[in-house]
Design a protein around this nucleic acid. Structure first.
Length: 965
RNA sequence: GCGCAAGUGGCGGAAUUGGCAGACGCGCCAGCCUUAGGAGCUGGUGCCUUCGGGUGUGCGGGUUCAAGUCCCGCCUUGCGCACCA
């Protein structure tokens, strides 16, 4: 290139960037001091505000990074770097979520050990991340697969295992319900303060019996329950990992319900707190809504309907007890255990509606046939059938407790066993599903809420209105609104012993075991009675053994009858051990748990380990946790009045795909740790921000196959002006999609480093638009960011000589004002993640300096400081060349001078009838009257108001609107 | 179906409280420089125009001196939930 010798080119950028990355590493620039623990540097902590910045734990993928990945990392880095310049003690680092399915699958494909492939991937990713110039404290980089890390994952598991939820216990924050050590429960059983479920004395129970009792309380417990089994994947999955159409989120394999003994986490005990505490954190409303939705809390009542002619009653859950007078039939889920008990023997009653019988001769046969049909339906079929209600009469009747009416009991698969009680009272007048069912089966419909005016007669009314047709001898709801009617009827039901208020949740307990190799082993052994024992702390970690065959046993994806087989079960000499657990029983024979933990385990607490990764004595030193995570004096702005601050990470950025899974699981673990006194914060992530995605153009040929995007040629048709895309001579169609191998549209950051440098990539990504938006990548637009940095360079460095060309002259007034306006704008944008607008302001200032004959040092230096969070390498280099020895990392961010923000004169806009017709330069402090006078004297205004003036609106000094008569 | 977002130039996107629509960047156009330009610099760039101006923030209505912004109705796109009683 015949360029000027000292131009800021990609080559120079690269030199500068690598040099500064080396220096940062040598000097430990980003090492954040801790108040306590092995790395205690209290003297460096004192007197500084702290800031904990976090990215979502990345999985080290074999494909390396593409340009979409670093978006969030750059954003947190800019935020962290900005705050370092305001004097805060900032902790920002990144580790690796390195256990998991892809590594295992890749290892199986390549025949290498997953540890090897995972570690190789981590090396690649570390190099790429370092090249971006992220200001991470590299001492704190951890990986979930390190035994030193998963030792503490296992330790936390044992804490959860050895805990139970006491709904009566009072928390430090005044609420009731918290986890307590299981030993305190055992003491209650031993003392007799709490009766055992079977009524026997604790001392009379065998160890196995005791263990069974405790399993009903432990927060981590085994249970024989229907679980999601994916034969094609060879493992069971949590509800959250199964898609709506009954397939695995990973791999898209069919999932079947199978009864298996599995480890569960009692997350349902925390349902209320997980829902309520969303009010106290600063998260996107959308994500809060998704979590609330998943928890699915609904207030309602349980009501018992006695079965006619039997000593049994059907208990239902309803959110609309106020509509009880309109309950004209009942429906049980096909799996409901009471069905067998209530179905009458023999023939149908003579007057039975033939449409109710399913064409069977007896109720028993009808029920059996329907059950069989229902059990054969897959989730998909149940869903695609949509609103076509199916069902069958059970032959039984139940009594509506409010009016004594005998109503038929049906069985139908639109009622789910997994929610509420698995039985409903059907109120067709006020419920769409019940209405459809009633229509289908010719059942009576009674309105008990007066529909609003104009409501169609042939539709249920689910809105608000006064109750009607809702009275018996003792209670009348008529005329009451929905809320009052609910309260009134619940009170009456409670007095009668027929019902009580209750709360129901969609949230189920968390299935926690997986039949995989590449995960944390459970710190659990079973003795010869089959009783589970936590492996004591001093024996942790339970290391994952090396095995010859780590591939999971998978099956035909459709083979629902198959059973999972954990790979660790094949390692006999690891499974069968003789141990002294230190419980006074001496050395005994045990069998190890052969399941492994799900991928979520390691990511449930990694942010806590960042705080104190070298600590061998504790998962985190309490003082470090309190310092970095502890509650703040003032709650978040959106918190309800009187709420206390939960503490937690100051800023967490990551993709919305983890809105339910990871964020919910981590909150649960954190709350258990809080209850057990291990942490002072009761939420892990005080502020969470979900970033958008970067998408990229992808192109498909005639057959719909993606073609390599980088080989597509764009041309504008000279006749029509249309833009056409061709690949190897054939025309292809453009679309936008996720960056990845499948769409053949990967752009690697490595290419960007080479063509432009890391600073340019950083500035480009941050300038693309608001962080929360998804936006398309456009490689040819990257040059805009490069031009900005080149002009910045040229404002400071002479491209011919390489000498600093700033002058030690005072700022002229216009430059001073431009500078301080920029400082003002940028220091508002950085803390609110408004990086795109901050960059726009910086470009404006830079362009203004370009037009000066000579750039004053003060302006150049302040501009360089403001650019530093975004483009740290060039900023460091310019800062040094401007004569500063210290890294710019802790340079002081400039503060705007308020005096320079107010203008002496302003352009006043003169509108006539709301349209801009003229402008006027006026003093900023002009009075309304003076301004009105000046405006009315303008020739254009005079001309327009010959017919008189109706009104004049004056908003001094910026606007006057004249309305002619 | 229900719920929640969002619709602004050729493109990504800016616009305190309602007060100059289109900051900044890409692209495009012109000029300069250059042997050359997929480099750089300078200027221009919503649309229409008879060069006076007109018109313009998904569509239709409304409130207002004044609406991208507030209200009502619709359309489109994206996301979430989907028999949750």
């Amino acid at each position: 290139m015949s360029e000027t010798p000292h131009r800021y080119t990609a080559e120079l950028a690269q030199q500068i960037e690598l040099a500064w990355q080396d220096r940062w590493q040598e000097e430990g620039t980003f090492h954040a001091p801790n108040p306590a623990g092995p790395w205690a540097e209290p003297e460096k902590v004192a007197g500084r505000e702290k800031l904990l910045v976090l990215d979502m734990f990345p999985y080290p993928s074999g494909a390396g990074l593409h340009v979409g990945h670093p978006l969030g990392y750059i954003a947190t880095d800019v935020f962290a770097r900005y705050h370092r310049m305001t004097g805060k003690n900032v902790l920002h680092c990144l580790g690796y979520d390195a256990f998991g399915l892809p590594a295992e699958q890749y290892a199986v494909q390549t025949g290498q050990h997953p540890r090897k492939t995972t570690e190789d991937n981590m090396v690649v990713m570390k190099r790429q991340l370092r090249r971006l110039g992220l200001g991470h404290d590299d001492r704190r980089t951890i990986a979930t697969i390190d035994p030193g890390y998963y030792k503490w994952t296992q330790w936390i598991f044992t804490q959860i295992y050895d805990a139970w939820y006491d709904p009566e216990a009072v928390r430090p924050d005044g609420g009731t319900g918290r986890a307590r050590p299981i030993t305190e429960l055992v003491e209650q059983f031993e003392s007799g303060d709490r009766p055992t479920p079977g009524g026997q004395r604790w001392s009379e129970l065998s160890p196995a019996e005791r263990s069974e009792v405790l399993d009903d309380f432990r927060l981590a417990y085994t249970s024989q329950a229907p679980v999601n089994w994916a034969p094609g994947l060879g493992t069971v999955l949590s509800n959250e990992e199964v898609t709506n159409d009954g397939r695995s989120e990973r791999g898209n394999f069919p999932v079947f319900k199978t009864n298996l003994r599995q480890w569960m986490m009692r997350i349902t005990s925390y349902a209320d707190r997980l829902a309520d505490d969303l009010d106290r954190v600063d998260w996107p409303d959308k994500v809060k809504a998704m979590q609330r939705n998943w928890i699915g809390r609904s207030q309602g009542a349980r009501v018992a309907f006695p079965v006619v002619g039997r000593d049994a009653s059907i208990e239902v859950f309803t959110t609309r007890p106020d509509t009880l007078f309109g309950a004209t039939f009942m429906v049980l889920a096909p799996e409901h255990p009471l069905v067998d008990e209530i179905v009458p023997q023999g023939e149908w009653a003579a007057d039975t509606n033939p449409a109710w019988t399913g064409g069977e001769a007896t109720p028993e046969a009808a029920v059996a046939a329907y059950r069989l049909a229902a059990s054969r339906k897959s989730e998909v079929e149940r869903q695609t059938e949509g609103k076509d209600k199916t069902g069958v009469f059970t032959g039984a009747f139940a009594t509506n407790p409010v009016n004594g009416q005998q109503i038929p009991v049906f069985m139908a698969d639109y009622v789910l066993m997994g929610y509420g009680t698995g039985a409903i009272m059907a109120v067709p007048g006020q419920d769409h599903r019940d209405w459809e069912f009633a229509e289908q089966f010719g059942l009576p419909i009674i309105r008990t809420v007066q529909p609003s005016e104009g409501h169609p007669d042939d539709e249920p009314f689910t809105g608000e209105g006064p109750a009607v047709n809702s009275a018996n001898d003792e209670v009348s709801l008529d005329g009451l609104g929905v809320a009052e009617a609910k309260a009134a009827i619940i009170e009456w039901l409670a007095a009668k012993g027929s019902g009580q208020p209750t709360v129901s949740y969609k949230l189920r307990d968390w299935l926690f075991s997986r039949q995989r190799y590449w995960g944390e082993p459970f710190p659990i052994v079973f003795d010869e009675d089959g009783v589970s024992h936590a492996v004591p702390d001093w024996m942790l970690p339970v290391e994952l053994p090396d095995v010859p065959d780590y591939s999971p046993k998978t099956f035909e994806p459709e083979d629902a009858s198959s059973q999972p087989e954990p790979p660790l079960g094949r390692v006999e000499d690891w499974v069968n051990v003789e141990l002294d657990l230190g419980d006074g029983r001496g050395v005994r024979k045990y069998r190890r748990e052969t399941n492994t933990m799900p991928n979520w385990a390691g990511s449930c607490w990694y942010y806590l380990r960042y705080l104190d990764p070298a600590n061998d004595e504790a998962f985190v030193d309490p003082a470090n946790e309190a310092y970095w995570m502890g509650p703040r004096a003032t709650p978040v702005a959106t918190a309800p009045a009187g709420a206390t601050d939960p503490g937690g990470v100051d800023l967490y950025i990551g993709g919305v795909e983890h809105a339910v899974l990871h964020l919910l699981y981590a909150r649960f673990w954190h709350k258990v740790l809080y209850d057990l006194g291990h942490v002072t914060s009761d939420e892990p992530f005080r502020k969470y921000f979900s970033q958008g995605y970067i998408q990229a153009a992808a192109y498909r040929d005639d057959r719909g196959q993606p073609v390599e995007s980088s080989e597509v040629v764009e041309a504008t048709d000279p006749d029509s002006g249309e833009v056409r895309y061709t690949w190897n001579g054939q025309s292809v169609a453009r679309e936008y999609g996720k960056i990845g191998k499948s769409l053949k549209n990967v752009v690697s950051p490595d290419e960007m480093f080479e063509q432009y440098g890391a600073d340019t990539l950083r500035v480009y990504e941050m300038s693309m638009g608001p962080l929360e938006l998804s936006k398309p990548w456009e490689t040819r637009a990257v040059v805009g960011a490069q031009r900005f940095l080149q002009r910045l360079w040229r404002n400071v460095i002479d491209e011919e000589t390489g000498e600093v060309r700033v002058v030690d002259a005072p700022l002229d007034d216009a430059t001073a004002r431009a500078l301080h306006r920029t400082i003002d704008a940028v220091s508002k944008d950085f803390p609110t993640l408004g990086f795109n607008t901050a960059i726009a302001r910086l470009i404006e200032l830079n362009n203004a300096l370009t037009k000066l004959d000579a750039v004053p040092r003060e302006a150049a230096e302040k501009l360089v400081v403001m650019v530093a969070p975004l483009a740290p390498h060039i900023a460091e280099e310019l800062w040094q060349r401007l004569g500063h020895d210290e890294s710019i990392t802790f340079g002081t961010f400039p503060v705007a001078d308020p005096a320079l923000l107010v203008e002496d004169t302003v352009t006043c806009v003169v509108q006539i009838k709301g349209k801009v017709r003229d402008r006027l330069e006026v003093p900023a402090d002009i009075t309304e009257d003076a301004l009105r006078e000046q405006v009315l004297a303008l020739p254009k205004v005079v001309a327009a108001t010959e017919a008189g003036i109706r009104t004049v609106i004056v908003r001094a000094p910026k606007l006057v609107n004249v309305v002619p008569a």
